[in-house]
Computed example of a mutant assay.
Amino acid sequence: MSEMTGDDRCLPPALADLGRVEIAYDDGDGIDFDPYSAFESPEETTHWLRQWTGNPEVDGDAYRIFGQDGSGGLAALWRGRPGRPLTEQPVVFMGSEGQCGMVAGNLPDFLWVLADGVGPLESVLYEEHTSRPDASLTQLAERHATTPRRPARDIITEARAEFPAFAGDIEKLCR
């Protein structure tokens, strides 16, 4: 399993497989999310975070960006648990319109959020999450997840409770 280090830019197998699954948008009734085939480069991550926050002093080392929604909002693994494997890092979303928040407490839980039909943007924007199970994403989660299957709303609520300061800390970086 990959450890989080400054030069670790290899997708975990679950994210690599996610990049090969067609995620149905279904004219807004599906999931608006396009996973990448590789993490965004450190330079691009830092550039984007500086643009997003308006803060030329921040760097993106704490993030591994692995996908985006149609508006350009980004999903990332956040180094909220230093020294732990990539799969144990929280998943966060930073939207194109300033939305920001926790999606899941770890990568396996993120797979269950997707399997339940909820994307990263919806995880952050809405308090209520309607279950719309997706068969191909459920199969992916069943292959890779090491956490039990739970409704997306429970996973999102748990992640927010575990990392309640995340959005506020990001807001403090904004200029």
Rank of each mutant, 00 (worst) to 15 (best):
L11G: 13
P12R: 05
P12T: 02
A16R: 15
D17I: 05
L18D: 05
R20L: 08
V21A: 07
D26F: 06
F33S: 00
D34K: 07
D34E: 14
P35T: 09
P42G: 07
E44R: 13
E44P: 00
T45Y: 02
H47M: 10
L49S: 05
G54R: 11
V58A: 10
R64D: 01
G67W: 06
D69V: 12
D69K: 09
G72P: 08
G72M: 12
A76R: 03
W78G: 09
R81L: 11
P82N: 11
G83T: 08
P85F: 04
P85V: 06
T87D: 12
T87V: 13
T87Y: 05
E88F: 00
E88W: 00
E88Q: 08
S96E: 12
S96H: 10
C100T: 15
G101V: 00
G101M: 03
M102W: 03
A104E: 06
G105Y: 01
F110P: 11
F110V: 10
W112Y: 03
A115H: 01
A115T: 01
D116P: 03
V118Q: 08
P120K: 09
E122S: 13
S123K: 06
L125P: 00
Y126N: 11
Y126C: 02
T130W: 04
T130R: 11
T130S: 07
P133F: 03
D134E: 11
T138I: 00
A141N: 04
H144N: 07
H144K: 06
A145I: 08
T146N: 05
T147W: 05
R150L: 15
A152F: 03
R153D: 02
R153G: 00
R153N: 00
D154G: 00
T157A: 14
E158R: 12
E158V: 03
E158H: 13
A161C: 08
F163R: 07
A165N: 14
F166Q: 02
F166I: 04
A167R: 14
I170P: 02
E171M: 14
K172F: 09
L173K: 14
R175M: 13
